[in-house]
């Protein structure tokens, strides 16, 4: 399929990286770690470009952004990083205890969590609307490009979350929404237990994988090397805020994508 060189430049929309890339990495805020890896020349030796988000405005990407992606996609592979912070946005600050079964976690850990059990299908029901538009986007891109859906980083340890809470006004606002404004103190504000956040993140990843499976595109999960045995993001892959991963994580994402494309296409 024919393709044309990308329009480079930071403002207002543009690409960073190779002028005629094989791989485009696009999407919401979790693409940031990939951008950092690219900016620091830590990406694999391959023809890759990534959108420059700060000028587009996270977390909402407008139609102009997706038009640019669609226009640039023909003949390339597009790796989409879609949302991925819903478990944090809704439940990091916890007004009400609850727990959700997760067959990948130790039952003794889950059974020891406080609060009533909530069906995993109820959590899915809450998260699914945040994927509105993704299936359509994939179908649109697939007409001219190969599409890969990229998983988003797992939750951080409570220590790291608390260390990053003061950097994010979003969570202070969220605490106010939940009626916890008077308790706002990064050290003590109620934060959902790690095991619960891991479960919620897994449900989010399952939804994404199902969308990818249903669309017939590959799903690239968060790199396993970045995940602790408890299912948390290892500290060495955590950015300073309470939800995002860092440059080293981005390097692994790019390596995973590179490997996938090499395996399936012979070379990137």
């Amino acid at each position: 399929m024919s393709r044309s060189p990308l329009v480079q430049g930071p403002d207002p929309l543009g690409w960073f990286g190779d002028c005629d890339p094989d791989l485009l990495v696009v999407g919401h805020s979790h693409v940031g770690n990939v951008i950092e890896a690219m900016e620091q020349n830590l990406a694999p030796d391959a023809r890759i470009a990534v959108t420059r988000p700060p000028n587009v405005g996270f977390p909402e990407l407008n139609s102009a952004y997706w038009e640019m992606v669609t226009d640039s996609a023909p003949g390339r592979t597009v790796a989409i990083v879609w949302q991925g912070n819903e478990h944090n946005a809704k439940f990091l600050i916890q007004a009400e205890d609850f727990r959700v079964w997760d067959s990948l976690q130790e039952s003794t850990i889950l059974d020891a969590l406080p609060g009533p059990w909530v069906a995993g299908t109820a959590v899915k029901n809450l998260f699914v609307p945040t994927f509105d538009g993704l299936a359509e986007l994939i179908q649109c891109l697939r007409t001219s490009a190969r599409v890969v859906l990229v998983g988003t980083p797992p939750p951080k340890s409570e220590i790291q979350v608390r260390a990053g809470l003061d950097r994010e006004s979003f969570f202070e606002s969220r605490a106010a929404e939940l009626g916890l404004q008077l308790q706002w103190d990064a050290a003590t504000i109620p934060v959902a237990p790690e095991a619960l956040r891991v479960t919620l993140w897994r449900i989010l990843q399952d939804i994404a994988k199902n969308i990818a499976d249903n669309a017939g595109v590959e799903f690239v999960a968060a790199p396993s090397i970045t995940i602790s045995s408890e299912g948390l993001l290892k500290p060495e892959y955590a950015a300073a805020d309470c939800t995002h991963a860092n440059t080293a994580y981005g390097v692994h994402v790019l390596q995973s994508l590179h490997l996938l494309l090499k395996k399936t296409e012979g070379a990137l």
Binding site: W101, S103, S107, D111, P116, W117, V118, A119, G120, T121, A122, N125
Partner: peptide, 18 residues
């Protein structure tokens, strides 16, 4: 007809016991 059924026996047991 529960709107949100369990997806595993382990989950079912916990939800039902509760």
């Amino acid at each position: 007809g529960l709107r949100f059924p369990a997806e595993s026996v382990e989950e079912f047991i916990r939800l039902t016991d509760q």
